[in-house]
Design a protein around this nucleic acid. Structure first.
Lengths: 118, 118
DNA sequence: CCCTTATATCGACATCTGTCAATATCGACC
DNA sequence: GGTCGATATTGACAGATGTCGATATAAGGG
């Protein structure tokens, strides 16, 4: 690990340490991991991740995602941005379309943090 | 399962189904699971769960939890209530003290939902 | 009984968040 | 270059959330 502990991103932080139940989480680690959980803690975003993850190749076009919800296009775009900024979704532009792909490794790290001691 | 799907609690819902990445989460399931993630998606509550879970016997006294934070006692009490209401922590009163214990099974179910396909 | 100690509830407040309509940007195609 | 379709950004607003101080409740000890 070349980066200083002080500059770890949420994704790096959640990947680096023992699960919740092993030893108390430090305040700094908790602060850095929380954005990932906040990103998942919304019904629309949870479904977005799920739809993307369950799609072939683990990615889906925004046009399809918009159709899956009864929400405005800007709202979906906003939620996708939140998930992307958190590091949970990759973004790829192909022609006019944008595809979001799930970071399964990050999901797995989050899961390991929460349930790693069970 | 004796209860109707319509009355499932968050804890029951998260325990019952396939992970995010297997098949798209329905809107109703997403709505029912989200409270659990919201409960975890706060740095103070994440640390509370961690401290409780890492304690001997998987439970800790509120008095100790208060001391671990630079926050007012009502604030900690509020966060513990959120975690308890979500079904993540058990509450036991022993004499004057209240002990909160972690529901490892629920944590495991949440983890399985998020990372179950990795 | 009263007092003390532990925990919860209430009311208030500032901040954060989800949503939309309007608008901007970016690519492709004519 | 102009237009059109796909996605992002902006600004506004209502409602949710985290925090506190003050107060309530509950249990034990004198």
């Amino acid at each position: 690990m070349s980066k200083s502990q002080l500059t770890l991103t949420p994704v790096e932080t959640v990947a680096c340490c023992s699960p919740l139940v092993r030893e108390p989480l430090s305040a700094e680690r908790a602060e850095r991991v929380t954005p990932l959980l906040k990103a998942l803690a919304d019904p629309v975003r949870l479904r977005l991740v799920s739809i993307v993850a369950a799609s072939e190749g683990g990615e889906a076009c925004v046009c399809d995602l918009n159709d899956a919800f009864d929400l405005s296009q800007p709202t979906i775009s906003h939620h996708l941005k939140v998930l992307h900024d958190a590091g949970l979704l990759d973004r790829t532009k192909r022609g006019v379309w944008v595809y979001y792909g799930v970071r399964r490794d990050v999901l797995a790290d989050v899961a390991a943090l929460i349930g790693g001691g069970a």
